[in-house]
């Protein structure tokens, strides 16, 4: 199974290619039944300047599947947990709905499901990944902004990309060890 052979899943994101079309957001809704009004992924817009000197950038964001996930640390029941391949998940059956993890997540990547009384979040689409497919948001993107793969595979596309391209990670100062790499 995927999580036995040592892997480290991550995303490389080329925001410049993002056209803010929201396909990834809707794909996630459909794939993972995310309630209307709640989001596992979203596009952060930055708009600047005065006419006619303007700038607009779009950053796709979602759970960072952190190296040291504070959500997992603070979870009192172990409902929030991390697989060996780095994917951070929530065991609904163990989730008491205290929402401590939401507060502890520097990226506000989690949301509360009133219907289930539990906290939910991006799963990197394990149900797909474990079958050898790529996450829904990665697949559906018209401009293929996201690259999903295994960081620990030295000659995988991800490792290669990060070796040769400059990138930044968000809010690394929290020590969470974010695993979304934004190309510059």
């Amino acid at each position: 199974m995927a999580e036995k052979t040592k892997k480290r899943y991550a995303l490389v994101i080329d925001s410049r290619k993002c056209i803010n079309c929201k396909a990834c957001v809707v794909a996630c809704k459909a794939e993972n039944g995310v309630p209307v009004g709640k989001f596992r992924n979203w596009i952060t817009e930055e708009r600047r300047g005065t006419y006619p000197h303007l700038l607009a950038t779009f950053d796709p964001e979602q759970c960072q599947h952190c190296q040291n996930p504070s959500c997992v640390r603070v979870c009192p029941t172990g409902a929030s947990w991390q697989r060996e391949d780095g994917i951070v998940l929530v065991k609904f059956d163990d989730c008491i709905g205290c929402r401590y993890c939401m507060i502890a997540c520097p990226y506000n990547a989690r949301y509360f499901r009133e219907d289930e009384g539990v906290v939910d979040k991006c799963t990197f689409c394990v149900q797909r990944v474990d079958k050898g497919k790529i996450p829904a948001c990665v697949e559906t993107c018209p401009s293929k902004v996201r690259l999903f793969g295994d960081l620990d595979d030295p000659d995988g596309a991800l490792a290669q990309m990060l070796m040769t391209r400059r990138y930044l990670t968000k809010k690394s100062e929290t020590g969470n060890g974010p695993q979304l790499y934004y190309l510059l």
Partner: peptide, 28 residues
Amino acid sequence: SNRMDRRTFLQVTAAGAAATAVVTQTGC
């Protein structure tokens, strides 16, 4: 994001989405 109002709740359940989501997390 705000607490889900009834309409959106209905929409969630409408497509059986609520159910699927649970499957997603516990399923994995």
